[in-house]
Simulated assay, not measured.
Amino acid sequence: MSTPERPFASYHLWSLIAPASGQQRWHCQMRRGYIKARQHEPQVRALLTKVTSSQRIGLLAQKGVYEFHHHRYLLNQSDGVEKVAELLRLSNSPSEVQQRVLQILKKYHDKPLLSGKRIVLLTRGDEGFPKPILIDQKHYCFRLYAAMDCIFIESSGNLHILDFKTGKSAFDRRQALVYLLAARYLYPRHKAIASFYNLEFSKKSELISVTKSELDLIELELASIAQKHQQDLQKYQQQTQKFSQIFPPNPGYHCRFCPFNSICEFSAFKASQTV
């Protein structure tokens, strides 16, 4: 058996291990098992590669912001929205996706949030996994993954990490905390703040900042998450038949929205379909 890689942590893994506040009853560890332990199985891989309309809208919206600032003159042209839509090949998308993304592009063209900002980083959203940050302390060591949408410098000199959202999902503060921890290693000379911006509803979150001692606690929490997940993976590799014990299911109405409901033997949605 191959030697397992060094433990890793990310906001995505944090969200798979621990639910957001108020979401406990809908949280299922088995979903983490499918995504992180069985992702190479053909059936699971096929489900993971499916892109939902919501995911497509989010990605196209991010790409749209990128294109507006990559070709800044488009922000000042009356047909800028149409030009960006062409760059995104939006006409190849389903009707609902086209309509929602066009609305997002129009809103951004009318009120470009990043106009005049000193942009340090602006991603297209499809670059794949970023290079991990190796966090190597006396009592723990793990790789931290933090794929950030946008970073710019405030007039105060602060580094502002901005994460774009679409749809009606609530902002999860933990995502910003992971980005702030990453900034401590990537931009050690800057004080960093973070926020979310919903491109679809033009909604800003509060500004999120933390102290050094709070960042230390976040780092400890992520080290613990990385270690727990690594231990779970090792248990599964040693006893694959104990999948449901290592990654226990939590069936319920929320199974309806799980991408694995067609192959999960515990899915309440699957069971209701066969009655």
Rank of each mutant, 00 (worst) to 15 (best):
87 L>N: 08
179 Y>R: 04
16 L>I: 09
101 V>K: 00
198 N>K: 03
158 N>C: 04
3 T>V: 14
2 S>C: 10
195 S>R: 04
85 A>W: 07
115 S>E: 15
124 R>A: 02
76 N>Y: 15
105 L>E: 03
28 C>P: 00
268 A>S: 09
134 L>Y: 08
75 L>S: 02
128 G>N: 03
27 H>L: 07
209 S>F: 12
77 Q>N: 04
255 C>G: 06
134 L>H: 06
6 R>S: 13
197 Y>G: 06
6 R>H: 12
26 W>E: 13
135 I>F: 01
83 K>R: 14
44 V>F: 10
250 N>K: 00
220 L>Q: 12
88 L>M: 01
11 Y>L: 02
211 T>A: 08
253 Y>H: 13
61 A>E: 03
16 L>Q: 12
97 V>A: 02
112 P>Y: 03
133 I>Y: 00
176 A>C: 05
17 I>D: 05
119 I>P: 01
205 S>H: 08
30 M>S: 03
99 Q>K: 13
113 L>Q: 05
108 Y>D: 02
163 D>E: 06
148 M>G: 11
159 L>K: 01
168 K>C: 15
259 P>G: 09
170 A>H: 07
232 D>K: 15
272 S>K: 05
77 Q>D: 04
72 R>V: 14
161 I>A: 06
10 S>P: 03
219 E>T: 05
187 Y>I: 06
85 A>L: 12
239 Q>E: 09
36 K>I: 15
249 P>C: 05
56 R>K: 09
265 E>T: 03
32 R>T: 11
213 S>M: 12
226 A>W: 00
247 F>M: 03
187 Y>S: 05
98 Q>V: 04
47 L>K: 02
141 C>L: 07
95 S>T: 12
58 G>S: 03
14 W>K: 11
7 P>H: 01
234 Q>L: 11
15 S>V: 07
57 I>G: 00
78 S>D: 11
145 Y>C: 14
129 F>P: 13
30 M>W: 02
250 N>S: 06
212 K>L: 12
139 H>N: 15
113 L>R: 10
18 A>R: 10
238 Q>V: 14
145 Y>E: 08
166 T>E: 05
42 P>F: 07
21 S>M: 15
149 D>I: 12
259 P>R: 06
230 Q>P: 08
273 Q>K: 05
47 L>E: 02
235 K>Q: 12
31 R>A: 02
98 Q>C: 04
105 L>N: 03
116 G>F: 04
68 F>M: 00
12 H>V: 12
72 R>L: 13
38 R>N: 13
198 N>F: 09
